[in-house]
């Protein structure tokens, strides 16, 4: 497991595009250390590695797919009307570079 440090904790937040102040990072640090200890302990449970990682609560395979029939799209207002930053019928953001 990657080191749980103030730096790696900040990185984790920044990857999700938000900031945390020092106090929050400290609190998070504590929680992650706790989680790590608990997960390490759980790692010792016998038979763990023979279990497949579970995605859904129970097997739920389906076999049907959606027919390729287009539906009426939203009006332009329906698409951009909820945004606070629009121009020329599109959503406007600061110039995207790179």
């Amino acid at each position: 497991m990657k080191g749980i440090t103030l730096e790696s904790v900040n990185e984790a937040a920044n990857r999700l595009l938000f900031d945390m102040d020092e106090k929050e990072c400290q609190a998070l640090l504590g929680e992650l250390l706790l989680l790590r200890a608990q997960m390490e302990k759980a790692g010792d449970i016998e038979g763990l590695d023979s279990h497949e990682p579970m995605v859904y609560p129970f097997p739920c395979e389906i076999s049907s797919l959606r027919d390729d029939v287009p539906e009426t799209p939203l009006s332009v207002e329906g698409v951009i009307g909820h945004s606070c930053s629009i121009k020329d019928n599109q959503i406007k953001v600061p110039k995207v570079v790179g």
Partner: peptide, 10 residues
């Protein structure tokens, strides 16, 4: 929830 998101990201 910022902390929870960060845990998820980690």
């Amino acid at each position: 929830i910022r902390r929870r998101f960060a845990i998820g990201s980690f």
